[in-house]
């Protein structure tokens, strides 16, 4: 089925970026597998996976982007996958928890939480932060499938929250789905 490539694109935000990026892939007869995009402070970022014929190289893809008549510069990194990837959802862990962290803004907050997760063998699946009137809010989706005891994590988290003067709550993602989605599987 050819080869899969992972691409990362960043640009100042403007209308038409998605059309431009997918246009390059289409021109090279690529097949888009999965993508994720977000905009932060007027900067657009996208990560995407697509498969191409064996003849297409990462350099061809980068060249395709560089020939775009774009008003903003697209910064692109393309890598060929060593092994074909499954779309992320298929292997999704059953033990996804949502951690919310709130506190007064100060430097090192995200690092502190990142370090906590690292030390406890927790993979961060998703992380979003907002700053509003000095209150910093982090919302993380965490994979706790490799954690032996969620109770122990909660205890350590409570200690971490106290030490760093943060309000932290760890809840299973099912709970949020149950309270906000119409379907309850």
């Amino acid at each position: 089925m050819g080869k899969q490539m992972v691409m990362s694109v960043m640009s100042k935000d403007r209308p038409g970026i998605v059309a431009d990026i997918t246009g390059v892939i289409y021109q090279l007869k690529g097949d888009l597998a999965d993508l994720n995009q977000s905009v932060l402070c007027d900067y657009f970022s996208m990560i995407l996976i697509a498969s191409f014929d064996d003849a297409v190289t990462p350099e061809d893809v980068v060249a395709g982007f560089s020939h775009l008549p774009s008003a903003t510069k697209l910064e692109v990194v393309v890598k060929e996958m060593e092994a074909p990837l499954e779309p992320a959802q298929e292997g999704r862990s059953q033990e996804v928890y949502v951690l919310t962290v709130q506190g007064q803004n100060k430097s090192g907050l995200v690092h502190r939480i990142g370090l906590f997760c690292c030390q406890h063998g927790i993979n961060i699946l998703d992380l979003a932060t907002t700053l509003s009137r000095g209150l910093y809010t982090m919302i993380l989706q965490l994979d706790l499938s490799h954690v032996e005891s969620v109770d122990a994590i909660r205890t350590d988290l409570a200690r971490c929250a106290e030490e760093s003067d943060l309000h932290m709550v760890l809840q299973h993602e099912d709970l949020f789905k149950a309270t906000t989605e119409i379907t309850l599987l």
Partner: peptide
């Protein structure tokens, strides 16, 4: 996709 405001509303409901 879970929305941040929904997540925070649910957290409020349980914690406070």
């Amino acid at each position: 996709m879970l929305r941040s405001d929904h997540i925070l509303a649910t957290v409020e409901m349980i914690q406070k």
